[in-house]
Design a protein around this nucleic acid. Structure first.
Lengths: 220, 220
DNA sequence: CGGCTCAAAGTAAGTACTTACTTACCAGCT
DNA sequence: AGCTGGTAAGTAAGTACTTACTTTGAGCCG
């Protein structure tokens, strides 16, 4: 499906070339960071001269920004947590809510490991765009999921605890698992389970951990 | 030509200067990564000329390796999980075991935030020393804590589940919380709690999530 | 169809500056 | 003297970014 991301002299239309350079740069930046990637390397990987990179992106910074922007905002299926959990919420099925979110995040990270690396690099290098992503996306998840938890607490389903703590626990399990899978232990030596199993176990433990002791025990 | 002007620092003994350069480099590398930190910056921060850096460390790589080595192996109080949990294990107090580990890790990361950043940078840059640390330290925690969980399962205290999953959940909560505190949300806008409270809540949720239903309750 | 135009796609070879690392030389001790 | 802590001033190889130039191909005209 990839036409050719390398040594072809084929002439491309402007927008096509722009997207190709962007795609190539994603992989390089995610593997070596901003400072660790040279414009020369990007050009070579795209099969064009350095000058072409600078025709499409005024500066290296602008290319980097375009990537983060592209990935975070309109990056294909951009992981909508609200949609993912909607079905479970309608059915008041806590397990479905958390499991769908966990599985969604895990498979998303598995299919696009570059994204997590890109974000980490960018956060470590204190790039403002990482902060922007965090402020926009992560805050949204905390508010959305926290709101759901608060509602279920009012209904007496969950124990009394700051919903933000529960969200942090849950996101912690999921993100840490992804981080292990594609950064620290890619060969899965410490733990090798499918995303489905992981999502199910994380959900099981969390829900069991925050479910209120019901006066008349009814299990579904 | 005045050879005695400028802010020439006090003359130091060799080993003393070496340690000072190392300390200064830790802070720079942890903030800007390996490629993002120049030897000139390190020298300036240490108050000596670049040549002095290269007298103590043959290459920039060697300096970096010395840092990771220093931090990971004999870095002051190097966080011994076995010791930390020993008291709880003797008392068969699950809560004490997990809470001590969580609090230990959280305060360790709080007092030495450079370490986590250094490790992340090093893992992203695929430095072999990060892998070494992971293989040695993290594997040890999985084996140690996993062994404890397995034992408590045999005693009927915990539900039947792969101990590695439980360890991953627990470490996930703790590490993700640290990562939030010193990388993504240092101003604690999403969640602002003390390390003690965090450790307690993480432990509560995890233990509640994996505790076996006591046999004297209603059978099903 | 062939030949012409002209902007866009493309390049080779710079520029000004930074980088890791070196060399040659001081100065203050015992 | 001789050894040690220290420096100023290099060097060769990058670095991001530019300039001045060449190639390509679609569209229009006869």
């Amino acid at each position: 499906m990839n036409p050719n991301d390398g040594v072809s002299g084929a002439r491309m239309a402007g927008e096509e070339r722009r997207l190709q350079i962007l795609a190539v740069a994603v992989s390089l930046f995610s593997n070596r960071g901003f400072r660790g990637t040279t414009t020369k390397e990007i050009a070579q990987a795209a099969g064009v001269s350095e000058a072409m990179v600078f025709r499409h992106f005024a500066t290296k910074e602008e290319l980097y920004a375009a990537i983060l922007d592209h990935k975070a905002c309109r990056g294909g299926e951009s992981f909508e947590p609200e949609k993912m959990a909607a079905e479970g919420i309608n059915r008041k099925d806590d397990r479905a809510v958390f499991e769908a979110l966990a599985l969604g995040a895990l498979t998303h990270h598995e299919h696009d490991p570059d994204f997590q690396r890109l974000l980490l690099h960018s956060a470590l290098e204190k790039h403002e765009l990482a902060q922007m992503f965090f402020d926009q996306f992560v805050r949204r998840v905390y508010e959305f999921l926290g709101g759901y938890i608060r509602q279920r607490q009012r209904e007496g389903a969950f124990i009394d605890i700051d919903p933000a703590i529960v969200v942090r626990c849950f996101i912690g399990m999921v993100m840490h698992h992804s981080l292990n899978n594609n950064l620290w232990d890619p060969s899965r030596r410490l733990l090798n389970i499918s995303n489905e199993d992981a999502a199910r176990h994380f959900t099981d433990i969390l829900l069991k951990g925050i479910t209120a002791p019901s006066p008349n025990s009814t299990k579904d």
